[in-house]
Structures are given as C-alpha cells and as structure tokens.
Amino acid sequence: METEKQYVIRCGNGYVRFNLDGSMIGCKYKSSKTTESHMKRLPFNIDLAVASGIIKIEEAE
C-alpha cells in the first residue's frame, strides 16, 4: 500500500501548519507534516499563496 507524501510548509524562517478553517499554527520544527489531500481541503488557494511567496512547500524528509 502506497502512503501519501508528506510535506512541511515554511513561512519565513519558521514552519507552519494550517487548520482546516484556514487558521495558522506556528511551529518551530519540521515535524509538523501535512499531506497534499489536507492542503487541498484548505479554504484558500494554496498554490496562489506559494506563487505569491508567502509560503514555501517542501517535501518532508
């Protein structure tokens, strides 16, 4: 069974995680991982946020 890829979201020098209502939780470490399916359920366009430079999405190690 294939598992879904894990990602981390960077905002500036830190890491963040988004709740499904769009609110953001600040995180100090890369340990706050998310998945593509979670990001697709967010109430905003994550691709637009990346394109604008507000956040960066990196594949988790």
Rank of each mutant, 00 (worst) to 15 (best):
G53V: 11
G22S: 06
I57L: 11
H38V: 03
L20C: 04
E2R: 11
I9Y: 02
G26T: 08
I25G: 02
Y15I: 04
V16R: 04
G26K: 04
N45T: 09
F44W: 07
T34G: 06
N13Q: 09
V16D: 02
Y15G: 02
Y7N: 04
A51V: 13
R17C: 03
P43L: 10
C11T: 06
Q6A: 12
I54S: 11
K40W: 14
I46Q: 06
Y7L: 10
L48M: 14
V8P: 12
E36N: 15
T3G: 07
Q6K: 13
K28T: 01
I57E: 06
I54N: 12
D47H: 11
A51R: 15
H38K: 10
Y29N: 02
E36I: 14
K28N: 02
G22L: 08
S31Y: 00
S52A: 15
S37H: 06
C27Q: 02
T3N: 08
S32D: 01
F44G: 07
E61V: 05
F18I: 04
C11Y: 06
C11K: 08
N45E: 11
S31A: 04
R17Q: 03
L42M: 15
F44T: 08
C27D: 04
D21T: 15
S31M: 01
G53K: 13
K30F: 00
I46C: 07
L42T: 13
E36Q: 15
N13F: 04
G14K: 15
Y7M: 10
V16I: 03
G12D: 10
Y15Q: 02
I9S: 00
I57M: 10
T35V: 05
E2Y: 08
Y15P: 01
T34A: 03
D21W: 13
S37M: 06
E36F: 14
M39F: 07
G53Y: 12
S37K: 07
G53I: 13
F18K: 02
L48N: 12
C27H: 00
T34P: 08
N45I: 10
V16T: 02
S23Q: 05
S52C: 14
M39K: 12
L20P: 00
T3M: 10
C11R: 07
M1I: 15
K28I: 01
M24H: 03
N19R: 12
L42P: 13
I54R: 13
L48P: 04
T34Q: 01
I46P: 07
G14W: 13
M24R: 08
Q6C: 11
S32R: 00
K30L: 00
I54D: 11
N13K: 08
K28Y: 02
R41K: 15
T3W: 05
I55V: 14
E36T: 15
K56H: 05
L42C: 14
A60Y: 00
G22T: 04
R17I: 01
D21R: 15
S52P: 09
M39H: 08
T3E: 10
I57H: 05
N45C: 11
S37T: 07
S31V: 00
S37G: 09
